[in-house]
Design a protein around this nucleic acid. Structure first.
Lengths: 270, 270
DNA sequence: CCGATAGTTCCATTATTCAGAACTCAATTT
DNA sequence: AAATTGAGTTCTGAATAATGGAACTATCGG
Protein backbone atom coordinates (compact mmCIF):
# COMPACT_ATOMS: atom_id res chain seq x y z
CA UNK A 1 0.00 0.00 0.00
CA UNK A 2 1.59 3.24 -1.09
CA UNK A 3 2.22 6.22 1.14
CA UNK A 4 -0.30 9.03 1.22
CA UNK A 5 -4.05 8.83 0.94
CA UNK A 6 -4.09 8.42 -2.76
CA UNK A 7 -7.84 8.64 -3.23
CA UNK A 8 -8.48 11.89 -1.37
CA UNK A 9 -6.52 13.58 -4.09
CA UNK A 10 -8.58 15.64 -6.37
CA UNK A 11 -12.22 15.79 -5.32
CA UNK A 12 -12.80 18.09 -8.23
CA UNK A 13 -9.58 17.60 -10.13
CA UNK A 14 -9.91 13.95 -10.91
CA UNK A 15 -12.68 12.88 -13.18
CA UNK A 16 -13.01 15.96 -15.32
CA UNK A 17 -10.55 15.41 -18.07
CA UNK A 18 -9.27 18.82 -18.94
CA UNK A 19 -8.21 19.80 -22.41
CA UNK A 20 -4.74 20.75 -21.45
CA UNK A 21 -2.79 18.02 -23.19
CA UNK A 22 0.60 17.28 -21.79
CA UNK A 23 0.33 19.92 -19.11
CA UNK A 24 -2.76 18.34 -17.62
CA UNK A 25 -0.99 15.04 -17.11
CA UNK A 26 1.96 16.72 -15.48
CA UNK A 27 -0.25 18.74 -13.17
CA UNK A 28 -1.98 15.58 -12.08
CA UNK A 29 1.39 14.22 -11.02
CA UNK A 30 2.16 17.42 -9.15
CA UNK A 31 -1.15 17.11 -7.38
CA UNK A 32 -0.42 13.55 -6.40
CA UNK A 33 2.96 14.40 -4.97
CA UNK A 34 1.93 17.58 -3.18
CA UNK A 35 -1.07 15.86 -1.62
CA UNK A 36 0.93 12.98 -0.24
CA UNK A 37 1.94 13.42 3.35
CA UNK A 38 5.40 12.03 2.74
CA UNK A 39 7.77 11.88 -0.21
CA UNK A 40 6.67 9.16 -2.63
CA UNK A 41 8.75 6.51 -4.29
CA UNK A 42 8.52 5.90 -7.99
CA UNK A 43 6.40 2.82 -7.52
CA UNK A 44 4.00 4.59 -5.19
CA UNK A 45 3.32 7.20 -7.82
CA UNK A 46 3.10 4.54 -10.50
CA UNK A 47 0.30 2.87 -8.60
CA UNK A 48 -1.94 5.93 -8.54
CA UNK A 49 -0.91 7.81 -11.67
CA UNK A 50 -2.17 5.30 -14.19
CA UNK A 51 0.69 5.78 -16.62
CA UNK A 52 3.08 3.27 -18.11
CA UNK A 53 6.39 3.10 -16.32
CA UNK A 54 8.51 4.55 -19.07
CA UNK A 55 6.18 7.48 -19.53
CA UNK A 56 5.93 8.21 -15.86
CA UNK A 57 9.65 8.12 -15.53
CA UNK A 58 10.18 10.75 -18.16
CA UNK A 59 7.42 12.95 -16.78
CA UNK A 60 8.89 12.86 -13.31
CA UNK A 61 12.33 13.60 -14.70
CA UNK A 62 11.06 16.66 -16.48
CA UNK A 63 9.24 17.92 -13.41
CA UNK A 64 12.34 17.39 -11.33
CA UNK A 65 14.59 19.07 -13.83
CA UNK A 66 12.36 22.12 -13.67
CA UNK A 67 12.50 22.15 -9.89
CA UNK A 68 8.80 21.49 -9.52
CA UNK A 69 9.67 18.22 -7.83
CA UNK A 70 12.70 17.32 -5.81
CA UNK A 71 14.23 13.85 -5.75
CA UNK A 72 16.01 12.84 -2.59
CA UNK A 73 18.98 10.48 -2.64
CA UNK A 74 16.67 7.52 -2.03
CA UNK A 75 14.76 8.38 -5.17
CA UNK A 76 11.71 9.65 -3.39
CA UNK A 77 9.81 12.57 -4.89
CA UNK A 78 8.73 15.62 -2.93
CA UNK A 79 7.36 18.99 -4.03
CA UNK A 80 10.13 21.27 -5.23
CA UNK A 81 11.29 24.68 -4.17
CA UNK A 82 10.39 26.16 -7.51
CA UNK A 83 6.80 26.08 -6.36
CA UNK A 84 7.59 28.26 -3.37
CA UNK A 85 9.50 30.64 -5.55
CA UNK A 86 6.70 31.04 -8.05
CA UNK A 87 4.09 31.37 -5.35
CA UNK A 88 6.05 33.93 -3.42
CA UNK A 89 6.27 36.19 -6.43
CA UNK A 90 2.69 35.68 -7.33
CA UNK A 91 1.55 36.44 -3.79
CA UNK A 92 3.68 39.53 -3.37
CA UNK A 93 2.20 41.09 -6.49
CA UNK A 94 -1.39 39.98 -6.26
CA UNK A 95 -3.55 43.00 -6.95
CA UNK A 96 -6.45 42.08 -4.74
CA UNK A 97 -4.21 41.29 -1.84
CA UNK A 98 -2.31 44.54 -2.19
CA UNK A 99 -5.51 46.54 -2.25
CA UNK A 100 -7.04 44.70 0.69
CA UNK A 101 -3.99 44.65 2.91
CA UNK A 102 -4.32 48.02 4.68
CA UNK A 103 -7.99 47.36 5.33
CA UNK A 104 -7.26 43.96 6.80
CA UNK A 105 -4.75 45.57 9.09
CA UNK A 106 -7.14 48.12 10.45
CA UNK A 107 -9.79 45.49 10.97
CA UNK A 108 -7.23 43.47 12.87
CA UNK A 109 -6.41 46.52 14.99
CA UNK A 110 -10.05 47.10 15.74
CA UNK A 111 -10.89 43.53 16.71
CA UNK A 112 -7.60 42.20 17.96
CA UNK A 113 -8.43 38.90 16.26
CA UNK A 114 -7.06 37.22 13.17
CA UNK A 115 -8.31 38.61 9.88
CA UNK A 116 -8.44 36.57 6.67
CA UNK A 117 -8.84 37.39 3.01
CA UNK A 118 -10.08 34.50 0.89
CA UNK A 119 -11.19 33.95 -2.66
CA UNK A 120 -13.51 31.43 -4.24
CA UNK A 121 -11.85 29.07 -6.65
CA UNK A 122 -13.87 26.21 -7.98
CA UNK A 123 -15.47 24.55 -5.01
CA UNK A 124 -12.93 25.75 -2.48
CA UNK A 125 -11.92 28.89 -0.72
CA UNK A 126 -8.27 29.79 -1.02
CA UNK A 127 -6.81 32.10 1.56
CA UNK A 128 -4.89 34.96 0.04
CA UNK A 129 -3.83 36.76 3.16
CA UNK A 130 -3.96 36.71 6.88
CA UNK A 131 -3.21 39.33 9.50
CA UNK A 132 -2.64 38.02 12.96
CA UNK A 133 -2.31 39.57 16.34
CA UNK A 134 0.84 39.58 18.36
CA UNK A 135 1.62 35.86 18.29
CA UNK A 136 4.56 34.73 16.23
CA UNK A 137 3.14 34.23 12.79
CA UNK A 138 3.23 30.95 10.95
CA UNK A 139 3.44 32.32 7.50
CA UNK A 140 1.97 29.91 5.03
CA UNK A 141 -0.03 28.24 7.76
CA UNK A 142 -3.19 29.37 6.11
CA UNK A 143 -2.23 31.28 3.02
CA UNK A 144 -2.73 29.23 -0.09
CA UNK A 145 -4.73 26.75 1.87
CA UNK A 146 -7.84 25.37 0.20
CA UNK A 147 -10.82 25.05 2.52
CA UNK A 148 -14.39 23.92 1.89
CA UNK A 149 -16.90 26.61 0.90
CA UNK A 150 -19.78 25.25 2.91
CA UNK A 151 -18.36 25.58 6.39
CA UNK A 152 -16.19 28.67 6.37
CA UNK A 153 -17.35 32.22 6.86
CA UNK A 154 -15.54 33.46 3.78
CA UNK A 155 -16.89 30.57 1.73
CA UNK A 156 -20.49 31.17 2.65
CA UNK A 157 -20.16 34.91 2.20
CA UNK A 158 -18.73 34.33 -1.27
CA UNK A 159 -21.51 31.93 -2.22
CA UNK A 160 -24.12 34.40 -1.04
CA UNK A 161 -23.38 36.85 -3.79
CA UNK A 162 -23.53 34.30 -6.61
CA UNK A 163 -26.78 33.80 -8.49
CA UNK A 164 -28.71 30.84 -7.21
CA UNK A 165 -28.20 28.77 -10.33
CA UNK A 166 -24.46 29.07 -10.06
CA UNK A 167 -24.54 28.13 -6.40
CA UNK A 168 -26.47 24.97 -7.16
CA UNK A 169 -24.19 24.02 -10.00
CA UNK A 170 -21.21 24.55 -7.77
CA UNK A 171 -22.58 22.64 -4.80
CA UNK A 172 -23.35 19.69 -7.05
CA UNK A 173 -19.62 19.07 -7.20
CA UNK A 174 -19.14 19.28 -3.46
CA UNK A 175 -19.19 16.30 -1.18
CA UNK A 176 -20.35 17.58 2.17
CA UNK A 177 -18.09 16.31 4.87
CA UNK A 178 -19.13 16.56 8.50
CA UNK A 179 -16.28 18.25 10.40
CA UNK A 180 -18.25 19.16 13.53
CA UNK A 181 -21.82 18.63 14.76
CA UNK A 182 -22.73 22.02 13.28
CA UNK A 183 -21.35 21.46 9.80
CA UNK A 184 -23.86 22.28 7.08
CA UNK A 185 -25.47 19.82 4.75
CA UNK A 186 -26.62 20.75 1.25
CA UNK A 187 -30.12 21.59 2.47
CA UNK A 188 -29.36 23.76 5.48
CA UNK A 189 -26.73 25.65 3.55
CA UNK A 190 -29.08 27.01 0.90
CA UNK A 191 -31.41 28.27 3.60
CA UNK A 192 -28.60 30.10 5.33
CA UNK A 193 -27.39 31.71 2.12
CA UNK A 194 -30.71 33.53 1.83
CA UNK A 195 -30.22 34.89 5.33
CA UNK A 196 -26.65 35.95 4.52
CA UNK A 197 -27.85 37.77 1.43
CA UNK A 198 -30.23 39.81 3.53
CA UNK A 199 -27.93 40.65 6.41
CA UNK A 200 -24.71 40.96 4.47
CA UNK A 201 -22.82 38.81 6.97
CA UNK A 202 -21.89 35.17 7.15
CA UNK A 203 -21.02 33.45 10.41
CA UNK A 204 -19.14 30.29 11.14
CA UNK A 205 -20.13 28.97 14.53
CA UNK A 206 -17.83 26.04 14.95
CA UNK A 207 -18.88 24.46 11.67
CA UNK A 208 -15.40 23.68 10.46
CA UNK A 209 -13.49 23.30 13.66
CA UNK A 210 -14.77 22.99 17.19
CA UNK A 211 -13.88 26.04 19.23
CA UNK A 212 -13.41 28.34 16.25
CA UNK A 213 -15.89 30.99 15.20
CA UNK A 214 -15.87 33.78 12.70
CA UNK A 215 -17.85 36.57 11.13
CA UNK A 216 -17.38 37.32 7.45
CA UNK A 217 -18.55 39.49 4.58
CA UNK A 218 -18.31 39.09 0.82
CA UNK A 219 -16.04 40.95 -1.56
CA UNK A 220 -16.57 40.79 -5.29
CA UNK A 221 -15.95 42.64 -8.49
CA UNK A 222 -18.96 43.89 -10.38
CA UNK A 223 -18.68 41.24 -13.05
CA UNK A 224 -18.08 38.50 -10.49
CA UNK A 225 -14.70 37.69 -11.98
CA UNK A 226 -13.46 38.02 -8.43
CA UNK A 227 -15.54 36.51 -5.65
CA UNK A 228 -14.24 36.20 -2.14
CA UNK A 229 -14.55 37.59 1.31
CA UNK A 230 -12.93 38.65 4.52
CA UNK A 231 -13.42 37.33 8.01
CA UNK A 232 -12.52 37.87 11.62
CA UNK A 233 -11.71 34.58 13.26
CA UNK A 234 -11.02 33.53 16.81
CA UNK A 235 -11.64 31.11 19.64
CA UNK A 236 -15.23 30.60 20.74
CA UNK A 237 -14.58 31.77 24.27
CA UNK A 238 -13.60 35.20 23.02
CA UNK A 239 -15.96 35.36 20.07
CA UNK A 240 -19.23 35.20 21.96
CA UNK A 241 -22.46 35.72 20.08
CA UNK A 242 -22.56 39.36 21.16
CA UNK A 243 -19.01 39.88 19.98
CA UNK A 244 -19.78 38.37 16.61
CA UNK A 245 -22.76 40.64 16.27
CA UNK A 246 -20.76 43.69 17.30
CA UNK A 247 -18.24 43.01 14.62
CA UNK A 248 -20.66 42.20 11.86
CA UNK A 249 -20.98 45.85 10.95
CA UNK A 250 -17.25 46.73 10.86
CA UNK A 251 -16.58 43.62 8.81
CA UNK A 252 -19.21 44.67 6.27
CA UNK A 253 -17.78 48.17 6.26
CA UNK A 254 -14.28 46.90 5.64
CA UNK A 255 -15.50 44.74 2.79
CA UNK A 256 -17.18 47.79 1.31
CA UNK A 257 -14.02 49.86 1.55
CA UNK A 258 -11.99 47.16 -0.14
CA UNK A 259 -14.50 46.91 -2.95
CA UNK A 260 -14.48 50.63 -3.54
CA UNK A 261 -10.67 50.60 -3.65
CA UNK A 262 -10.83 47.73 -6.11
CA UNK A 263 -12.97 49.81 -8.42
CA UNK A 264 -10.48 52.64 -8.29
CA UNK A 265 -7.50 50.38 -8.69
CA UNK A 266 -8.87 47.99 -11.25
CA UNK A 267 -12.05 49.51 -12.59
CA UNK A 268 -10.77 52.02 -15.14
CA UNK A 269 -9.49 49.66 -17.75
CA UNK A 270 -5.74 49.87 -18.28
CA UNK B 1 7.22 49.01 -24.85
CA UNK B 2 5.63 46.17 -22.94
CA UNK B 3 4.91 46.25 -19.22
CA UNK B 4 7.44 44.78 -16.84
CA UNK B 5 11.19 44.75 -17.21
CA UNK B 6 11.32 41.89 -19.65
CA UNK B 7 15.07 41.43 -19.64
CA UNK B 8 15.60 41.08 -15.91
CA UNK B 9 13.73 37.84 -16.13
CA UNK B 10 15.85 34.83 -15.73
CA UNK B 11 19.48 35.64 -14.93
CA UNK B 12 20.05 31.93 -14.75
CA UNK B 13 16.86 30.66 -16.34
CA UNK B 14 17.21 32.15 -19.75
CA UNK B 15 20.01 30.91 -21.91
CA UNK B 16 20.35 27.39 -20.62
CA UNK B 17 17.98 25.41 -22.72
CA UNK B 18 16.71 22.62 -20.55
CA UNK B 19 15.77 19.23 -21.84
CA UNK B 20 12.26 19.32 -20.57
CA UNK B 21 10.40 19.57 -23.85
CA UNK B 22 6.97 21.07 -23.64
CA UNK B 23 7.17 21.64 -19.92
CA UNK B 24 10.24 23.81 -20.26
CA UNK B 25 8.49 26.15 -22.64
CA UNK B 26 5.50 26.44 -20.38
CA UNK B 27 7.66 27.13 -17.36
CA UNK B 28 9.38 29.89 -19.26
CA UNK B 29 6.01 31.53 -19.76
CA UNK B 30 5.20 31.13 -16.09
CA UNK B 31 8.49 32.77 -15.27
CA UNK B 32 7.77 35.66 -17.56
CA UNK B 33 4.37 36.29 -16.07
CA UNK B 34 5.36 35.87 -12.43
CA UNK B 35 8.35 38.16 -12.88
CA UNK B 36 6.35 40.97 -14.41
CA UNK B 37 5.28 43.60 -11.95
CA UNK B 38 1.85 43.90 -13.44
CA UNK B 39 -0.49 41.58 -15.34
CA UNK B 40 0.63 41.23 -18.94
CA UNK B 41 -1.45 41.42 -22.05
CA UNK B 42 -1.17 38.79 -24.74
CA UNK B 43 0.94 41.01 -26.92
CA UNK B 44 3.32 41.89 -24.10
CA UNK B 45 4.04 38.24 -23.56
CA UNK B 46 4.30 37.63 -27.27
CA UNK B 47 7.07 40.21 -27.47
CA UNK B 48 9.31 38.47 -24.93
CA UNK B 49 8.34 34.81 -25.31
CA UNK B 50 9.62 34.29 -28.82
CA UNK B 51 6.81 32.00 -29.87
CA UNK B 52 4.45 32.26 -32.81
CA UNK B 53 1.11 33.76 -31.89
CA UNK B 54 -0.96 30.68 -32.40
CA UNK B 55 1.36 28.59 -30.30
CA UNK B 56 1.55 31.11 -27.52
CA UNK B 57 -2.18 31.40 -27.44
CA UNK B 58 -2.67 27.70 -26.89
CA UNK B 59 0.05 27.56 -24.27
CA UNK B 60 -1.47 30.41 -22.29
CA UNK B 61 -4.90 28.84 -22.57
CA UNK B 62 -3.62 25.60 -21.13
CA UNK B 63 -1.85 27.35 -18.28
CA UNK B 64 -4.97 29.33 -17.50
CA UNK B 65 -7.19 26.29 -17.65
CA UNK B 66 -4.97 24.66 -15.07
CA UNK B 67 -5.15 27.68 -12.82
CA UNK B 68 -1.45 28.40 -13.10
CA UNK B 69 -2.32 31.69 -14.74
CA UNK B 70 -5.37 33.83 -14.31
CA UNK B 71 -6.89 35.92 -17.08
CA UNK B 72 -8.71 39.05 -16.04
CA UNK B 73 -11.68 40.41 -17.99
CA UNK B 74 -9.36 42.64 -20.01
CA UNK B 75 -7.43 39.61 -21.14
CA UNK B 76 -4.39 40.29 -19.03
CA UNK B 77 -2.50 37.39 -17.56
CA UNK B 78 -1.43 37.19 -13.92
CA UNK B 79 -0.05 34.32 -11.83
CA UNK B 80 -2.83 31.98 -10.75
CA UNK B 81 -3.99 30.82 -7.37
CA UNK B 82 -3.08 27.25 -8.15
CA UNK B 83 0.52 28.24 -7.49
CA UNK B 84 -0.32 29.36 -3.97
CA UNK B 85 -2.23 26.21 -3.37
CA UNK B 86 0.59 23.95 -4.50
CA UNK B 87 3.18 25.94 -2.60
CA UNK B 88 1.18 25.97 0.57
CA UNK B 89 0.95 22.20 0.61
CA UNK B 90 4.55 21.79 -0.31
CA UNK B 91 5.67 24.19 2.39
CA UNK B 92 3.54 22.70 5.12
CA UNK B 93 5.06 19.26 4.56
CA UNK B 94 8.65 20.15 3.81
CA UNK B 95 10.79 17.81 5.86
CA UNK B 96 13.70 20.15 6.43
CA UNK B 97 11.43 22.93 7.50
CA UNK B 98 9.52 20.72 9.91
CA UNK B 99 12.72 19.49 11.49
CA UNK B 100 14.22 22.94 11.76
CA UNK B 101 11.16 24.76 13.00
CA UNK B 102 11.46 24.18 16.76
CA UNK B 103 15.13 25.10 16.64
CA UNK B 104 14.40 28.30 14.77
CA UNK B 105 11.87 29.19 17.42
CA UNK B 106 14.23 28.77 20.30
CA UNK B 107 16.92 30.74 18.52
CA UNK B 108 14.36 33.47 18.01
CA UNK B 109 13.51 33.37 21.71
CA UNK B 110 17.13 33.62 22.67
CA UNK B 111 17.99 36.52 20.39
CA UNK B 112 14.71 38.33 20.04
CA UNK B 113 15.54 38.92 16.38
CA UNK B 114 14.20 37.45 13.19
CA UNK B 115 15.46 33.98 12.32
CA UNK B 116 15.62 32.61 8.78
CA UNK B 117 16.04 29.19 7.26
CA UNK B 118 17.29 29.21 3.69
CA UNK B 119 18.43 26.69 1.14
CA UNK B 120 20.77 26.93 -1.81
CA UNK B 121 19.14 26.37 -5.16
CA UNK B 122 21.19 27.01 -8.24
CA UNK B 123 22.75 30.42 -7.78
CA UNK B 124 20.19 31.71 -5.33
CA UNK B 125 19.16 31.25 -1.76
CA UNK B 126 15.51 30.47 -1.23
CA UNK B 127 14.03 31.17 2.14
CA UNK B 128 12.13 28.24 3.53
CA UNK B 129 11.02 29.67 6.83
CA UNK B 130 11.14 32.73 8.99
CA UNK B 131 10.35 33.26 12.64
CA UNK B 132 9.81 36.84 13.68
CA UNK B 133 9.78 38.61 16.96
CA UNK B 134 6.82 40.15 18.64
CA UNK B 135 6.57 43.21 16.42
CA UNK B 136 3.31 43.49 14.56
CA UNK B 137 5.67 43.84 11.61
CA UNK B 138 4.49 42.59 8.30
CA UNK B 139 5.01 38.89 7.90
CA UNK B 140 6.13 40.12 4.55
CA UNK B 141 6.62 36.92 2.79
CA UNK B 142 10.32 36.48 2.68
CA UNK B 143 9.41 32.85 2.34
CA UNK B 144 9.93 31.53 -1.15
CA UNK B 145 11.94 34.60 -1.99
CA UNK B 146 15.07 34.06 -4.05
CA UNK B 147 18.04 36.14 -2.94
CA UNK B 148 21.62 36.33 -4.19
CA UNK B 149 24.14 33.94 -2.60
CA UNK B 150 26.99 36.37 -2.48
CA UNK B 151 25.56 38.97 -0.16
CA UNK B 152 23.38 37.11 2.31
CA UNK B 153 24.53 35.38 5.45
CA UNK B 154 22.73 32.18 4.61
CA UNK B 155 24.10 32.25 1.07
CA UNK B 156 27.70 32.65 2.12
CA UNK B 157 27.35 30.06 4.86
CA UNK B 158 25.95 27.61 2.31
CA UNK B 159 28.76 28.28 -0.15
CA UNK B 160 31.34 27.78 2.55
CA UNK B 161 30.62 24.10 2.86
CA UNK B 162 30.81 23.36 -0.86
CA UNK B 163 34.09 22.17 -2.36
CA UNK B 164 36.01 25.00 -3.95
CA UNK B 165 35.54 23.70 -7.47
CA UNK B 166 31.80 23.72 -7.11
CA UNK B 167 31.83 27.22 -5.69
CA UNK B 168 33.79 28.49 -8.64
CA UNK B 169 31.52 26.77 -11.13
CA UNK B 170 28.52 28.24 -9.40
CA UNK B 171 29.88 31.75 -9.15
CA UNK B 172 30.67 31.72 -12.84
CA UNK B 173 26.93 31.94 -13.46
CA UNK B 174 26.44 34.82 -11.07
CA UNK B 175 26.48 38.43 -12.10
CA UNK B 176 27.60 40.35 -9.06
CA UNK B 177 25.32 43.28 -8.48
CA UNK B 178 26.33 46.05 -6.12
CA UNK B 179 23.47 46.54 -3.66
CA UNK B 180 25.40 48.51 -1.06
CA UNK B 181 28.96 49.85 -0.71
CA UNK B 182 29.89 46.63 1.13
CA UNK B 183 28.52 44.17 -1.41
CA UNK B 184 31.07 41.52 -2.35
CA UNK B 185 32.71 41.12 -5.70
CA UNK B 186 33.88 37.77 -7.03
CA UNK B 187 37.37 38.26 -5.61
CA UNK B 188 36.58 39.38 -2.08
CA UNK B 189 33.95 36.70 -1.72
CA UNK B 190 36.32 33.77 -2.19
CA UNK B 191 38.61 35.20 0.43
CA UNK B 192 35.78 35.49 2.90
CA UNK B 193 34.61 31.94 2.28
CA UNK B 194 37.92 30.65 3.59
CA UNK B 195 37.40 32.64 6.77
CA UNK B 196 33.84 31.32 7.12
CA UNK B 197 35.04 27.78 6.74
CA UNK B 198 37.43 28.27 9.65
CA UNK B 199 35.10 30.05 12.02
CA UNK B 200 31.87 28.31 11.08
CA UNK B 201 29.97 31.58 10.84
CA UNK B 202 29.06 33.90 8.02
CA UNK B 203 28.16 37.52 8.57
CA UNK B 204 26.29 39.97 6.46
CA UNK B 205 27.25 43.50 7.44
CA UNK B 206 24.95 45.57 5.31
CA UNK B 207 26.05 43.88 2.10
CA UNK B 208 22.59 43.37 0.72
CA UNK B 209 20.65 46.16 2.32
CA UNK B 210 21.91 49.19 4.19
CA UNK B 211 21.00 48.99 7.86
CA UNK B 212 20.53 45.23 7.92
CA UNK B 213 23.01 42.81 9.43
CA UNK B 214 22.99 39.13 10.18
CA UNK B 215 24.98 36.23 11.49
CA UNK B 216 24.54 32.82 9.89
CA UNK B 217 25.73 29.22 9.94
CA UNK B 218 25.52 26.46 7.37
CA UNK B 219 23.27 23.42 7.44
CA UNK B 220 23.83 20.53 5.11
CA UNK B 221 23.22 16.86 4.69
CA UNK B 222 26.25 14.62 4.58
CA UNK B 223 25.99 14.01 0.86
CA UNK B 224 25.36 17.72 0.18
CA UNK B 225 22.00 16.98 -1.37
CA UNK B 226 20.74 19.64 1.00
CA UNK B 227 22.80 22.79 1.42
CA UNK B 228 21.49 25.78 3.27
CA UNK B 229 21.76 27.73 6.45
CA UNK B 230 20.11 29.68 9.20
CA UNK B 231 20.58 33.25 10.21
CA UNK B 232 19.66 35.83 12.81
CA UNK B 233 18.85 39.10 11.12
CA UNK B 234 18.13 42.57 12.39
CA UNK B 235 18.73 46.30 12.14
CA UNK B 236 22.32 47.48 12.41
CA UNK B 237 21.64 49.64 15.46
CA UNK B 238 20.67 46.58 17.46
CA UNK B 239 23.06 44.12 15.84
CA UNK B 240 26.31 45.73 16.85
CA UNK B 241 29.55 43.92 16.16
CA UNK B 242 29.63 42.62 19.73
CA UNK B 243 26.09 41.35 19.42
CA UNK B 244 26.88 39.56 16.20
CA UNK B 245 29.89 37.95 17.84
CA UNK B 246 27.86 36.94 20.90
CA UNK B 247 25.32 35.18 18.75
CA UNK B 248 27.78 33.47 16.45
CA UNK B 249 28.09 30.57 18.85
CA UNK B 250 24.36 29.95 19.48
CA UNK B 251 23.72 30.17 15.75
CA UNK B 252 26.36 27.51 15.11
CA UNK B 253 24.94 25.42 17.91
CA UNK B 254 21.43 25.65 16.50
CA UNK B 255 22.68 24.67 13.06
CA UNK B 256 24.37 21.67 14.65
CA UNK B 257 21.20 20.60 16.44
CA UNK B 258 19.18 20.84 13.26
CA UNK B 259 21.73 18.75 11.41
CA UNK B 260 21.69 16.07 14.02
CA UNK B 261 17.89 15.99 13.92
CA UNK B 262 18.08 15.70 10.16
CA UNK B 263 20.23 12.63 10.47
CA UNK B 264 17.74 11.03 12.82
CA UNK B 265 14.77 12.06 10.75
CA UNK B 266 16.13 11.40 7.30
CA UNK B 267 19.33 9.46 7.71
CA UNK B 268 18.08 5.90 8.17
CA UNK B 269 16.99 5.17 4.67
CA UNK B 270 13.31 4.33 4.25
C1' DC C 1 23.99 -17.40 -6.30
C1' DC C 2 19.16 -16.93 -7.41
C1' DG C 3 14.82 -14.70 -7.77
C1' DA C 4 12.39 -10.70 -6.96
C1' DT C 5 11.56 -5.94 -6.67
C1' DA C 6 12.72 -1.18 -8.23
C1' DG C 7 14.19 1.86 -11.45
C1' DT C 8 16.08 3.14 -16.18
C1' DT C 9 16.74 3.21 -21.19
C1' DC C 10 15.32 2.25 -25.90
C1' DC C 11 12.54 2.84 -30.06
C1' DA C 12 8.81 2.30 -33.41
C1' DT C 13 4.16 4.24 -33.13
C1' DT C 14 0.98 7.80 -32.21
C1' DA C 15 -0.70 11.90 -30.44
C1' DT C 16 0.55 16.89 -29.52
C1' DT C 17 2.49 20.69 -30.57
C1' DC C 18 4.06 23.90 -34.00
C1' DA C 19 4.05 27.81 -37.22
C1' DG C 20 2.03 30.33 -40.36
C1' DA C 21 -1.87 32.14 -42.31
C1' DA C 22 -6.54 33.28 -42.37
C1' DC C 23 -10.15 35.07 -39.69
C1' DT C 24 -13.00 37.84 -36.22
C1' DC C 25 -13.90 41.75 -33.58
C1' DA C 26 -13.36 46.29 -31.77
C1' DA C 27 -11.37 50.61 -31.75
C1' DT C 28 -9.45 54.43 -34.75
C1' DT C 29 -8.85 57.04 -38.64
C1' DT C 30 -10.25 59.11 -42.95
C1' DA D 1 -19.91 55.32 -42.80
C1' DA D 2 -16.19 52.87 -44.91
C1' DA D 3 -11.51 51.70 -44.41
C1' DT D 4 -7.64 50.68 -41.50
C1' DT D 5 -5.16 49.20 -37.85
C1' DG D 6 -4.36 46.45 -33.75
C1' DA D 7 -5.43 42.62 -30.76
C1' DG D 8 -6.77 38.18 -30.17
C1' DT D 9 -8.57 33.61 -31.87
C1' DT D 10 -9.06 29.54 -34.83
C1' DC D 11 -7.52 26.43 -38.42
C1' DT D 12 -4.34 23.24 -40.87
C1' DG D 13 -0.67 20.18 -42.77
C1' DA D 14 3.98 19.45 -41.21
C1' DA D 15 7.24 18.75 -37.52
C1' DT D 16 8.15 17.18 -33.04
C1' DA D 17 7.67 15.34 -28.79
C1' DA D 18 5.10 12.06 -25.90
C1' DT D 19 3.68 7.37 -25.57
C1' DG D 20 3.77 2.47 -24.22
C1' DG D 21 5.71 -1.79 -24.38
C1' DA D 22 9.65 -4.33 -23.77
C1' DA D 23 14.31 -5.08 -22.78
C1' DC D 24 17.84 -3.83 -19.66
C1' DT D 25 20.28 -2.81 -15.23
C1' DA D 26 20.72 -2.27 -10.46
C1' DT D 27 19.78 -3.58 -5.67
C1' DC D 28 18.01 -6.33 -2.07
C1' DG D 29 16.76 -10.57 0.65
C1' DG D 30 17.38 -15.01 1.29
Amino acid sequence: MPAGDGDTIGNAEIGDRRETGTLGKLMLLLDIVTHADAPMRFTDILAVAGQPRGTLHRQLSHLSEEGLLEVDPDGRYAPGLRLLELASRSWARNEFRLIAEPHLRSLQQLTGETVHLGVLRGTSVIYLDKVEGRQPVRMYSQIGNASPVYCTGVGKAALSILPDARVRALLADVSFQRFTPSTHTAGTLLAELAEIRRSGNAFDREEHEVGIRCVAAAIHSEDLSFVGGISVTGPAYRLTSERLDDWAEPVRQTAQSIMSDMRIGLGPRR
